[in-house]
Simulated scan of single mutants.
Amino acid sequence: MKSKFVFVLLVLGTYFSAFAQQKQARGFEAKADVVEKGLIKVSVLYPYAEGKTFDMDYYEKNHMPYVAGLLGSNLVRYTIEKGISSGIPNSPLPFMAIGSFYVKSVTDYQAAIAPHREAIRADFPKYTNISPIILISEVVK
């Protein structure tokens, strides 16, 4: 009888532990995907073109953390995207990569970047030969 009771406790403990882990994982995923309305999004788009190159490893480990560090407490988060396909079958890839910074204030973003603009541009040849397109937008939803 005692061994059956211990077995039931072990099964229930395993079940509730797994349930708690799943609930925690779902909660984390939901929070990680939320981007607050009103934030400013600075998108740095690297268009695809024949003969252009992009070193994602350097961009991820060096360039983006460097720029993110300049933004201080204004930075909420940043993301890095690697282009894999066009939305239209058999069409060229529109962008090789997109880096995005979510910040609280466009004015503070510009003030933080301005003194370092030349250093940021000087870093480009270390990972790409593409001239990026920059779009600053406001998160609506």
Rank of each mutant, 00 (worst) to 15 (best):
I80P: 03
G72S: 02
L93R: 09
A97Q: 05
I98G: 04
T107S: 13
A112D: 03
F54N: 09
M56V: 11
G87S: 14
A114Y: 09
S100C: 12
G87A: 13
Y48H: 14
D57I: 08
D57Q: 15
L75C: 03
Y66C: 00
D108E: 15
P125V: 11
D57V: 09
I80F: 10
G99R: 04
F54M: 11
Y59M: 08
H116D: 02
D57T: 13
V76K: 06
D55K: 03
N62D: 11
T107D: 15
T79A: 12
G69M: 05
F54C: 10
L71A: 04
M56Q: 13
P115V: 08
A111Y: 04
P125Q: 09
S100L: 07
V76N: 10
Y58F: 09
I88N: 15
A49Q: 14
A122I: 07
Y48D: 13
K104A: 05
I88E: 15
G87T: 10
E50L: 03
L93E: 12
G83V: 05
G69K: 00
Q110K: 13
S86N: 15
F95Y: 15
S86F: 09
V103L: 04
S73G: 11
K52I: 00
T53W: 08
D108M: 06
M96V: 07
E118T: 13
A97T: 02
P115K: 04
I88S: 14
K104H: 05
G83F: 10
H63F: 05
S85D: 10
K82H: 13
V67C: 06
D57K: 14
L70I: 05
S86L: 03
D123I: 06
G83I: 02
P125E: 09
T53R: 14
L93S: 06
N74C: 08
M96A: 13
A119L: 10
P92G: 10
P115Y: 07
D55E: 06
A114Q: 14
N74H: 06
N74A: 06
M64Y: 05
V106E: 14
A112P: 03
E50S: 12
K104F: 01
M96K: 15
V103F: 00
K61R: 14
E81F: 12
V103Q: 01
A119K: 14
N90A: 13
H116S: 00
Y78E: 04
F124A: 06
E81T: 03
V67D: 05
N90I: 02
G83Y: 10
I113C: 06
E60H: 03
S100I: 05
P89S: 12
V103A: 04
V103W: 01
I88L: 15
T53K: 15
P115E: 05
M56I: 10
V106P: 00
F54K: 08
V103K: 00
D57F: 06
L71M: 02
G51P: 07
F54G: 11
E81G: 12
I113V: 15
I113Q: 08
D57N: 14
F95V: 10
A49F: 01
P65R: 03
Y102S: 00
F95G: 03
A68F: 04
G83H: 09
S73A: 12
A122W: 07
Y109P: 00
D108V: 05
Y48S: 14
I84D: 08
V106K: 12
P94T: 03
Y78H: 12
I84T: 11
R117T: 13
T107I: 11
G99V: 10
F124I: 11
Y66M: 00
S91Y: 12
D108P: 02
